[in-house]
Amino acid sequence: MNAPPGHAPLPPVFTLADLKQQLNGDEQAAMELAGRWLESGQVRQVAPPRPVFIRLNGAEPPDEAQLCLALARTFPSVVVVGGSALWRQGVSRQRDALLHCAVAESVDGCSLPGVRLHRRPAGWLEAVSRAGGLRGHLHQLPLLSAEMAVADAALFADVWVPDREHLDPDRLAAEGVAAAQAQLATLRDDV
């Protein structure tokens, strides 16, 4: 993928706004260039139709930092959930095969390899945050706390979690899970 003539190359993750800026605000040229790159397969829309793109290097999958940046730029509300959050906090001994993330908005699809997006109702992020259910980060993405990850997986039942014997019981407080479940119960009607 060539940068627009006379401009620095675009970063691996960029938006339509970045492209317009590179082309001195020429919207038509930016649309045509983005269209050509998409047709040739050199870039992908992270989650069509959102105007955030990721540059692809042939068959080589993007690294985790790029995936996280792409998700963060596409979805303000994205959070790592389920077994992905548990493994990255050392609570699970079983690693995730896909990065499981949740967003509190409608999603038509996600074209990132190795990522699975789960939909959550409006107000989910606020409820989780109010309950202190966000802990730590994977690059730029916040992680659910271990207790909240278990409570969320139990309520929505759409996300991968490791088997019970693969969880470290010393790092997962049962009362914490119960408290998180109580906090999420307010969202039950929206599920």
């Binding site: 339509l16 649309m31 139709p49």
Partner: peptide
């Protein structure tokens, strides 16, 4: 306004594929 505009332009790009 620009974000909303780009949202529509993103849809146009998807449709163009």
């Amino acid at each position: 306004l620009a974000a909303q505009l780009e949202d529509y332009q993103g849809r146009l790009l998807t449709l163009g594929l």
